[in-house]
Amino acid sequence: MSALIARQAQPSLAERLADLAVQALIDEADLSPKPGLVDRRGNGAHNDLHLGLMHASAHALWPAFKAMAQAAQLFGEVGQPLREALGQLGREGETEMLRVTAGVNTHRGAIWALGLLSAAAMLRPDAAPGQVATTAATLARLSDPAAPHNPDSHGARVCRTYGVLGAREQAQHGFPAVLGHGLPQLLASRRAGAGEQNARLDALLAIMSDLTDTCVLHRAGLQGLGRMQQGARAVLDAGGAASLDGRRQLRELDRDMLALNASPGGAADLLAATLFLDRLTPAASAPTGSN
């Protein structure tokens, strides 16, 4: 067999972006110990989720992420046609997710965040993470007439009750929790020699320390949100996940989140977005095959 025939075709940029999105979801799920969240230790504050289900859900979303990146390539610019295409593809991805998980919502928020970022990265393959997030925000601010209106969803009720912004607004504002907290902390902890897993935990905690997480508000109200934010700050103030004092604070936060039945799912989705943006440069610079 000739080397030319045996050589595998290079994946397209759309495929590489889908790979990055799925890997970000898997890395977020595997990261341990995460307070209140599914990880390698167990189910956290959930009785309907487990690590295997999170992995299966992430893999099931690969075609949707690829399709959203391809849609951006097809339309070639931010505009209403692309926004509506992304909305439809996201809903199709959610349907497949729910089929694989037997109706359990594992990654609805992540489809929104990573779908927008995948499309933005396709439009701006050489851009810095902040520029990609800005492009995604411009897309997110466009309307999608076909989007279902569900005022009784958990997120919608929480936003009304507490007057807070949710996942949609986080994207529309350019992912401030990611660019202002998650990504800077990830890079700072790496520079400090924390090790990759501890750096990722610190990034999650930095997001938790500031985010108004509607998942926590839904499950545990303002008490749960306050404990999440205060506890996350305490871990970082004690030296982060790589330090002995930080680990003690992290164990206490995990214990309290479980007692409150609080799971920071919004922060988890934004950690996945942080990891996606962190890895964009190598993906964009790799050889591109046929799309």
Rank of each mutant, 00 (worst) to 15 (best):
S2H: 12
I5F: 08
R7D: 05
S12F: 02
S12D: 03
A21E: 09
A24E: 05
L25C: 15
D27M: 01
L31T: 11
S32I: 01
P33L: 14
P33S: 03
K34H: 01
G36C: 10
D39Q: 08
R40C: 07
R41V: 03
R41Y: 12
L51H: 07
G52E: 13
L53A: 08
A56T: 05
A58H: 07
A60F: 03
P63D: 09
P63G: 10
A64Q: 01
A69W: 08
Q73D: 09
L74V: 03
F75R: 11
E77D: 12
Q80P: 06
Q80W: 04
L82N: 10
G87N: 06
G87H: 05
R91K: 04
G93I: 11
T95G: 00
M97S: 09
G103Y: 08
H107S: 06
R108L: 15
I111H: 09
L114A: 06
L117T: 10
S118F: 01
P125E: 10
P125S: 10
A136T: 11
A136V: 09
S143C: 01
D144H: 04
D144L: 03
A147F: 02
H149K: 11
R160I: 00
G163H: 09
G163C: 12
Q170L: 10
Q170P: 00
G174N: 01
A177L: 14
V178W: 07
Q185K: 13
R191L: 14
A194Q: 09
G195H: 08
G195M: 11
E196W: 04
Q197M: 09
N198E: 14
D202E: 05
S209N: 02
L211N: 06
T214H: 02
C215A: 13
V216M: 10
R219N: 04
G224S: 09
M228G: 01
Q230A: 15
Q230V: 00
G231R: 11
A232E: 08
R233M: 09
A242T: 03
S243K: 01
D245F: 00
G246T: 08
G246P: 05
R247H: 04
R247Y: 00
R247C: 11
R251P: 00
R251E: 15
R255Y: 04
M257R: 07
G265D: 12
G266T: 01
G266Y: 11
A268S: 14
D269N: 13
L271Y: 09
L271I: 07
A272Y: 06
A273T: 10
A273G: 06
F276D: 08
R279C: 13
R279L: 02
T281I: 01
A284K: 01
S285D: 06
T288Y: 00
G289Y: 03
